[in-house]
Design a protein around this nucleic acid. Structure first.
Lengths: 199, 199, 199, 199
DNA sequence: TGCTAATCGAGACGGTACGTCTAGTCTTTTT
DNA sequence: AAAAAGACTAGACGTACCGTCTCGATTAGCA
């Protein structure tokens, strides 16, 4: 889009060039989408971004760091607020699945999880990120508490963890096309339980 | 045990040498435990097993295939049968977590998941494996149905998926040391639900 | 010449592939001639030879080693034997200068000398090579001794060193086009001396 | 002496800062002595001198130029005048060898020769420098002519070239520790010749 | 006395090469 | 026929330098 141009990015003095940073992050995303995690190398990103490898290493000490920033640049998925817990959770999962399916987010996040298995930094960052998201997603639960839809002693972070777990496993096993009925059933189990006395 | 030892394994004629296969699988596991997924390369396994790379490639077409076989050689975790659904599920998760924590299984399975993100074969194998396990773990649910502890229309595979999701996410974010109370709480949510009318 | 061809060299089993070695040495020479010592990099040689860098490093631990072998593959300059010391030495220098001028030898040897200034191995190899050559060139002197053209106590290695020094300096300062008269004068000084009492 | 020291050199207005120039030349020499030609990089010099790279490139367009100026800043070796040609030449070589051995001059000059093999500018400068030195060293010969120690038609520049060649080759092959007897023998050959009729 | 212009240290930039590692394929020799 | 051994091309790894650039601060000399 932007005619950001051919005559090649240069240094803009003794400080970070945001144009380079942007080009690198965009290239990283593009490489990930086009070649997948298998084809995601610093070399490939540098080539695509017309950047020098040292420029990448200067700002992102590892592949993990780059992946993490790429992921964080992405638009977050919307958390619905319908006034009903079940709808909120089903809506959240549906949004998340389609977001992961239709944008590059899914690829990026999968790669991040994969990278975390061989990089301690990424592992820590991912764990931190995940627990942060629990608070965020947990607001759905907190709102239900406020509405007295569920008891006040429900551990909202734990519920968010359960819901996120379900999403992660679907992402990692390429089942992002799960139909709404199944998602709703799963959410229903968490909300109303599966035991007979829960009916 | 086996005197695979020093004088170097040789061909045993026109057929697969089981000593080599064993040595390779054991080396693969050892490399994974000692150097992690990051250090897990065919080269490293070949070096450790004192085997030629082509010998590995002949029998395992990819890193994923090797990982998969290493994982499948492992002892399976025990599925408890206490006569009470909650105890069975809590016991299963506790067993699984400690199995992953205390043997090499955790490392191996994490690596397998990571590998599946860059290898189509591994992805398919993992998805297949996972859905197979749902049937297996689902037997806990099926027994509860048989005992009329839960309604007959509960989707046992889906419940097994939920439980496994929780386990996977803990594995992938290095939280295998979760205490029993938390596990029990999570299982409780699935069994009895979190909603007020479930009480 | 040989249609050794496009379909790419492969391994020929668990031993060195002479076709690769040849291709690398020829590429090294070609790069040196075309791009000079400044453009002589292992990368460039590998590219030119369609060889992997590790193949080069496997057999030549350093740039110096590669240079040395390239130089040693070259045809040696002819040592004349006219029966007269002066003619032999003048002829030798003329041959050497034109050999260095007209083949790649000059570039290669200059590069070797340059490399020796930053590589200890090359330095040692060069020193060894030089003293070996003194013996070789010294045969011109030895023959003159045998003919009683010069006294038996003349240090032939030292004389060879003097003559070689003159050649090296001309090589290093791009004066390989020195005319015969000057060469003859220089040789004359060494043979008959410059002092009055030598007349 | 000068408190160029810590508070960091700055611009002194729209003209060259001699303190910077000095610091750079001194750093260049130091780097050369400590790390050799292999470790001699503009970056290393800049680091050592606490100077910006552009400051170096502003005043010395190439590594060669910097090397040349470093060499020219060095104290020249003393040319003896004993009244006897042989003593003068032997003394000159002995002085030169020990000068090269004991100061940084040797390293610097070797590096300059090496650099000249990949840099056209350096090559030209070196050739010019060398022929200039022939005139200078040739004065030893000229004085001998004036004393009628040698004939007037001796080509003093050529003799100086021969002597210098001998010195260069020793420098380049790390033989600066040659003993006086050998040097004297070499000088003797040039002065009195090696041929029988020269006796 | 303010303005202009060149210099300084600093360090980022796009690149190239380094030397090492692994991937996956190949061939010979041995059993 | 299959094992071991190890070489082969290919290419990524993370680092060091290259030579250029722009910055902000500094200071001399011109207006």
């Amino acid at each position: 889009m932007a005619a950001d141009a051919d005559p090649a990015r240069r240094s803009i003095g003794a400080r970070r060039n945001p144009a380079s940073a942007d080009a690198i992050l965009e290239a990283a995303e593009a490489v990930l989408v086009e070649a997948g995690y298998a084809g995601f190398s610093i070399e490939a990103v540098a080539r695509r971004a017309r950047a020098g490898k040292p420029t990448i290493y200067r700002w992102w000490p590892s592949k993990a760091a780059l992946l993490l920033e790429v992921y964080q640049r992405q638009k977050r998925v919307e958390v619905p607020d319908t006034g009903r817990l079940e709808e909120d959770l089903v809506g959240f999962l549906k949004n998340l699945f389609s977001h992961w399916r239709e944008t590059s987010s899914g690829s990026v996040f999968k790669s991040l999880i994969a990278e975390a298995q061989s990089d301690e930094t990424a592992a820590a960052a991912l764990a931190g990120y995940a627990s942060g998201r629990h608070v965020h997603t947990g607001q759905i639960i907190e709102r239900a508490k406020a509405r007295s839809e569920i008891p006040a002693d429900v551990d909202s972070a734990l519920v968010a963890d359960l819901i996120a777990s379900y999403a992660w496993k679907h992402l990692l096993t390429n089942r992002l096309d799960e139909d709404e009925a199944t998602i709703r059933k799963a959410v229903g189990y968490v909300i109303r339980g599966i035991a007979r006395n829960a009916l």
